Amino acid sequence: MRWPVEVVLDLLGSGMTINDILIDHPELERENIIASLNYARILLSGQISAAA
């Protein structure tokens, strides 16, 4: 199952911890959340475009 990065960031932005998210959404793995954060960081740094 693919989760949009925006959804993962919204969950974190709402105050949920990574552990909270993993408990509520067992289909996700810690690596998925970390990958979402890394993608957002790279996107914001300008190293890739949003269309990539």
Rank of each mutant, 00 (worst) to 15 (best):
G46A: 10
V5D: 03
L43W: 03
E6G: 03
L11V: 02
A35L: 12
T17W: 04
E6Y: 06
P26A: 15
D10C: 08
I21W: 02
Y39V: 09
L37G: 01
R30E: 10
D24I: 06
A50I: 10
L43R: 03
N32G: 14
I34H: 12
S36Q: 11
S49R: 15
S45P: 07
A51I: 12
I23G: 02
R30S: 09
I34W: 10
M16N: 15
R2W: 06
M16G: 04
M1K: 09
S45M: 04
R2I: 11
I48R: 09
A50K: 11
N32S: 13
M1D: 08
A40Y: 03
S49N: 15
H25F: 13
A51G: 14
L37R: 12
D20S: 00
S36W: 01
I21E: 01
I18P: 03
A40V: 05
M16V: 02
L22S: 04
G13H: 01
I34F: 07
N32L: 03
D24N: 14
L11G: 07
A50F: 06
E6F: 04
E31A: 14
A40W: 01
S36K: 08
M16H: 08
P26T: 12
V7E: 15
P4R: 15
A52V: 15
A35N: 11
V7R: 13
L11P: 00
D24R: 14
L44H: 13
E6S: 10
S14C: 04
S45E: 08
A51W: 15
S14L: 12
A40R: 12
G15K: 03
S45D: 14
A50W: 02
R30W: 08
I34L: 14
D24F: 14
L12R: 05
T17Y: 00
E29S: 07
D20P: 07
A50M: 08
S49L: 00
L44C: 09
R2N: 12
A51K: 15
V7P: 06
G46F: 00
R2Y: 10
A52Y: 11
N38G: 08
R30M: 03
D10L: 09
D20Y: 11
T17G: 15
L43F: 02
G15L: 04
E6A: 05
L43N: 04
V8Q: 10
L9P: 00
L43V: 01
R2D: 13
A35T: 05
I42P: 05
I42T: 13
A52I: 12
V8W: 00
V5K: 02
G15E: 04
N32Y: 11
L43I: 01
V7Q: 14
E6P: 01
S45W: 05
Y39A: 12
V8S: 03
V7N: 11
E29M: 14
I42A: 08
I48T: 10
I42S: 03
M16D: 08
R41E: 13
L12V: 02
S45A: 08
G15W: 01
L11W: 01
L11R: 05
L43C: 00
L43E: 05
L28E: 05
L9Q: 03
P4Q: 05
A35K: 13
E29L: 13
I34Y: 13
I21D: 08
G13M: 01
I21Q: 04
I18R: 07
E31K: 14
G13R: 10
H25Y: 14
N38E: 12
L44S: 09
V7I: 11
